[in-house]
Design a protein around this nucleic acid. Structure first.
Lengths: 209, 209
DNA sequence: TTTAAATCCCCCTAATCAGGTGAGAAAGCC
DNA sequence: GGCTTTCTCACCTGATTAGGGGGATTTAAA
């Protein structure tokens, strides 16, 4: 744990919630809230002045949304640890926030002590997540168990998705080019597509690869 | 929380550790350890008999390794929740375990109460992870901030990685095919590659896309 | 004012892609 | 035993592509 008090900025449009967070965070000695904003624009404008180590960021904000804010903040100040705090558990939002550089994602049913735990965790280089979010993140690594494709076809599609040509796939799998083509034809027929890009798009969407 | 005691199987080659876990888990009312094994083969053989709801799985085992075991167990009994418990924090192992269907990944510096917390969490549909593991998982969503590629080039490479042809990329970006080609030439030169597959491989490895 | 980025154009050749049609061997299922 | 799927291989065709070469212009940042 740091010997310095980490500087925290809160971006949250609900005044009561924002002030509640401030009180909680300021009640412990390791942290203090340097500023709170009800919109992302003002928070971004004052980054240089506030010098936050950690930001608590709501996603549903008036004006600029939280996802865009995360991208802007992380580009200009990559050292800032962003913790998303929102009611949304929509998977697109979660992955957009994480891809944009959020260090954690906690939902708004979080207790005061859990909020402080989350701040502790990013301070120690962790990645705090609500239980449901962690589950979504872990699930994103796993394939669809109901794939219509055979093991070999999946293998071929994986190589196709790596940009390999028919002949390269054939080489990798120690078969002839005609065999690779044959697999691809069957993949197209099963997925009801007519090109590499459609096949990869469908396979990615349905987590077949 | 369930009204039934969840059935737990432990796969762990260190006898003392395995028996320690059993004692801890059996000391709470929600769970009981139906069996413990010092290798994956025996655990897999007895799946039908043991009917575990949750398995605690070490990765470094004599004979079959834990990753292969996870894949086999998840294929035959997808309802089983697997919690990896290992000393390894190697990123390849973590992602292999998660891709294979592990529900959680905790490292061996975990306290007794944290172990029980992890079991509680999978019981409630969560995905328990050690702090470092969660950080690795979240980091896997984020791009390399030191990419040599321009924003436009990254965009082009992303489309290329989706299997799109030069002309499709041009259409998507509302430019001519020659422009798309020009970007791709620059990408190849910057990445020092000479084909789609090499570019995608390098970009994926270095998280440029 | 030099550099990088983004756009566009021409030429070239070998290779690729997608479709059709057909077929043999092995494995699994009822 | 018969059925289906899977994996393997082959030939044909026509349109497109990929990757390389050579340039050029405009804008914006350093």
């Amino acid at each position: 744990m740091s010997y310095f008090r980490s500087r925290i900025v809160i971006v949250e449009d609900n005044d009561a919630v924002r002030e509640g967070f401030s009180l909680i965070i300021n009640s412990v000695s390791n942290y203090y809230v340097v500023n709170g904003y009800d919109n992302a624009e003002d928070a971004i404008k004052n980054l240089k002045k506030d010098k936050p180590d950690i930001m608590l960021m709501d996603l549903e904000l008036p004006g600029m949304n939280g996802i865009d804010a995360i991208n802007i903040i992380k580009k200009s100040s990559p050292h800032i640890q962003l913790i998303v705090n929102t009611i949304y558990e929509n998977s697109d939002l979660v992955f957009q926030a994480l891809c944009g550089g959020a260090s954690g994602y906690i939902t708004k049913n979080t207790s005061h002590s859990e909020l402080l735990d989350a701040i502790d965790e990013v301070t120690n280089g962790g990645a705090p997540m609500s239980s449901k979010i962690a589950k979504m993140v872990v699930a994103s690594f796993q394939k669809n168990p109901n794939s219509p494709l055979s093991a070999r076809e999946t293998e071929v599609l994986e190589l196709l998705s790596k940009g390999k040509s028919y002949s390269m796939i054939a080489q990798d799998l120690f078969v002839t080019k005609e065999t690779a083509k044959s697999h691809i034809k069957n993949i197209y027929s099963k997925l009801q597509v007519h090109s590499k890009s459609e096949a990869i798009a469908k396979a990615t969407k349905e987590k077949l690869i």
